[in-house]
Simulated assay, not measured.
Amino acid sequence: MQVNTLFYIFIFLCIVPINVANAAAKKLLFCYEDKEIAPMFLGAGQEIPTQRPGASADVLRLLDDAVDGVDIEFVRKPWRRCLKDLESNKVNAVIASFREGREQIAVYPMDEDAKPNAQFAISRFGSCLLGRDKFRSQWQSRDKFNTKTFTIAVPSGYGLSAVLKKEPLFVHETVSKENAFELLNKGVVDSSIDICQVDKIKASSYPYSDTDVKALFPPYEFTLGYLVFSHQFYENHPTLSHKMWQWVSEFDSAPIYIDYLNSAKQPQN
Rank of each mutant, 00 (worst) to 15 (best):
A162C: 00
I72C: 03
Q51Y: 08
V189R: 11
E103Q: 14
Y260I: 00
G43K: 04
A57K: 04
A106G: 06
E178R: 10
Q246E: 15
A153E: 12
W247A: 02
N179C: 02
Q268E: 13
R142G: 05
V171L: 05
K144Y: 05
D34M: 10
A55N: 04
T223Y: 09
G43R: 04
Y234H: 13
G159N: 06
V228A: 07
S204K: 05
M110E: 10
M244N: 06
P238L: 06
P155Y: 02
G54N: 01
S88R: 09
N4W: 11
N236S: 14
Y32G: 01
V154D: 10
F150D: 10
N185F: 12
S137F: 06
G187T: 01
S253Q: 14
F120L: 02
P219C: 09
P168Q: 07
I256D: 09
L63E: 12
D259R: 14
M244Q: 09
A264P: 04
S205M: 10
S161P: 00
V198E: 12
E33R: 07
H172R: 05
L62K: 15
V16W: 10
E87C: 04
V198D: 13
R52S: 14
P49V: 00
A106I: 01
K165R: 13
F150H: 10
D199Y: 06
H172G: 00
E112S: 15
T211E: 13
D58K: 05
A264D: 12
Y257E: 05
Q138G: 00
N269Y: 11
T174Y: 07
K165C: 03
K177C: 00
K90A: 12
A24L: 11
V171K: 03
R124E: 15
Y158Q: 08
K265D: 07
K214Q: 15
E87Q: 13
P168M: 07
Y220Q: 09
F120N: 02
Q197V: 07
F233M: 05
T147R: 08
P218Q: 05
F217G: 02
C14D: 05
K90E: 14
I193L: 12
A215T: 08
D143T: 08
A38G: 10
S176E: 08
V59T: 08
Q268T: 12
D113E: 15
Y260N: 02
V198M: 10
V20F: 15
E87L: 05
L62D: 13
L261N: 07
